[in-house]
Design a binder for these strands. Structure first.
Length: 472
RNA sequence: GGGGGAAUGGGCUAAUCUGGUAUGCUGCCAGCUUUGGGAGCUGGUGAUCUGAGUUCAAAUCUCAGUUCCCCCA
């Protein structure tokens, strides 16, 4: 790596994807990439952390088909408008022309709710909270970029039904909590949850809330989003339950979609440095790499000691790099790969019953006695995750700005501004900011109070604070 | 969606303007030597994106397609 992440993020990103063997772009279909083992291992760990958390919050897993008949997809009118233009369609099978074409799911609401219609009869069937791990396909017209925007991507989607609006609203808050625990606390990626303005909602939703993070160039990247669907879909799919008073009512719904491949992009971008990846201890395919250093006469003893150390650490993901490379090469290689902890063992360490530990985040080297091995690995692993998280948060905080007039706008983070309205009335002002400054209205933050001033664009009395940024 | 650039062994690249033997580095394989921050020597392996056209002759010129990158919407 000899490109600076701070000065040229785009090139740095392309470079690290290639150098660290995260994916291969040579498959030959636009927007479809091959994800390689080192990335898949971390992505799988991210999936499991997420799935465990969803289950703790009462979700159950299911697997729905990836093909959606056109007549399901077109039941909810706004949803049709939003998604049909970007569907891949299956129109033939074997020798046959299909009577009805099938969409490769761009998202699964319509697949899942067509079954909810059959599964939900009464109050005892509610709440219903189901998630699935899935890949989805969208014919994106914007420029594709590995992990950030591809035409096939990997995510989790949770689809919940409730008897009342209040329960559904509570679920939205719970989704935010889940996001904080997983993306914020475990992955160490800072973000802000925005309520999207009315002109920028998920197709078919009453309200959309998204966790947006910042990439090193100050542009926003949308991470998980949760949507209050109200009864839009339950009406379209006739998902009803019999209430206590004997009347049939439509269920209230929410859906939540963390795009894991995209969160992986954020993980790379937020934590990495100019030597390569820096993976959190909890997500690294390899948590500890042991590098032996020896002269011919000490080779046997050093390798034996490395094996003993690896054996004691076998509860973690660990390996001894016995390849025929010089130590310097191995150091650089594993730093590029982002392995959080490195243990070096040479003749001096064998003699002194010690080992050298090097932290990937700081480069700090320290020597420890062998007895403390497990304790040191546990402590430094945790400390590294905490440090990464703190470093990311501090950088993120330094990119939060505010402005009350157009000449104070910035383009390298989130700018909080007084704004006329996040309903359709404000759309014109938002268009102006987009056209003139390429700044997008991310939305409002729930805890913000009503501003005193006037809208930064039109000068009318401001109804809300909104946050602006450039975006991916 | 609009504009621009690019495509040569696995990766990076020279030759392309001015048509004629495809260069170097790296990787990979074998062997010898080597190991506290990207080791060395020797030998070997491997390429002109796809399709059409012009030509005695195409990596090179023309047209079309595909993919990648950058900028703009």
């Amino acid at each position: 790596m000899n490109i600076s992440k701070e000065e040229n993020f785009s090139e740095w990103y392309n470079e690290i994807i290639k150098e660290a063997d995260l994916c291969d772009l040579r498959y030959g279909i636009k927007g479809f990439v091959v994800i390689r083992p080192w990335a898949v291992k971390t992505i799988n760990l991210m999936f499991s952390f997420y799935e465990r958390m969803l289950e703790e919050y009462g979700h159950k897993p299911a697997i729905f088909p990836s093909l959606i008949p056109e007549h399901y997809l077109t039941k909810e009118s706004e949803h049709v408008e939003g998604f049909v233009p970007e569907c891949f369609w299956v129109t033939e099978a074997g020798q046959h022309q299909l009577k009805e074409r099938y969409a490769l799911r761009p998202t699964s609401e319509t697949a899942i709710y067509s079954m909810y219609n059959l599964w939900i009869k009464g109050k005892k069937d509610l709440p219903l909270k189901i998630y699935q791990r899935a890949q989805v396909w969208r014919y994106e017209t914007k420029a594709t970029k590995p992990f950030i925007r591809t035409r096939e991507f990997y995510w989790l989607e949770a689809h919940n039904c409730f008897a009342s609006k209040e329960e559904a609203e509570r679920q939205v808050l719970e989704d935010m909590e889940i996001t904080q625990k997983v993306v914020g606390d475990i992955f160490g990626i800072p973000f802000i949850f925005f309520k999207r303005p009315q002109w920028d909602k998920f197709a078919g939703a009453v309200n959309t809330y998204t966790a947006d993070t910042l990439m090193p160039d100050g542009r926003a990247l949308q991470l998980p989003s949760t949507h209050l669907l109200g009864q839009n879909f339950s009406r379209a799919f006739d998902v009803k339950f019999m209430d206590e008073d004997g009347k049939e009512r439509f269920v209230w719904q929410t859906c939540y979609g963390p795009g894991i491949s995209r969160i992986y992009a954020a993980l790379i971008a937020v934590h990495g440095d100019n030597k390569g990846l820096i993976l959190p201890f909890s997500l690294a395919p390899l948590q500890v790499v042991i590098v032996p250093i020896f002269k011919e006469e000490s080779k046997e003893a050093v390798l034996r000691r490395c094996d003993e150390v690896a054996e004691r650490l076998k509860g973690w993901r660990v390996c001894v790099d016995k390849s025929e490379r010089t130590p310097g090469y191995k150091f650089n290689y594993w730093e590029l790969k982002g392995v959080p902890l490195r243990i070096e063992i040479g003749p001096r360490d064998v003699a002194a019953n010690s080992f050298v530990l090097v932290r990937r985040d700081s480069g700090e080297k320290s020597s420890h006695s062998l007895e403390s091995l497990e304790e040191v690995v546990r402590r430094e692993g945790e400390a590294l995750d905490q440090r990464l998280k703190k470093r990311a948060q501090e950088w993120f905080a330094s990119r939060l700005f505010s402005a009350t007039s157009l000449d104070q706008l910035r383009f390298d983070g989130f700018v909080k501004v007084p704004f006329c309205s996040d309903t359709l009335e404000g759309k014109e002002c938002a268009e102006f900011l987009k056209e003139k400054y390429h700044l997008h209205v991310r939305g409002t933050v729930l805890k913000d109070k009503k501003p005193d001033g006037t809208c930064i664009v039109c000068g009318k009395s401001a109804g809300v604070y909104v946050y602006l940024s450039r975006q991916y």
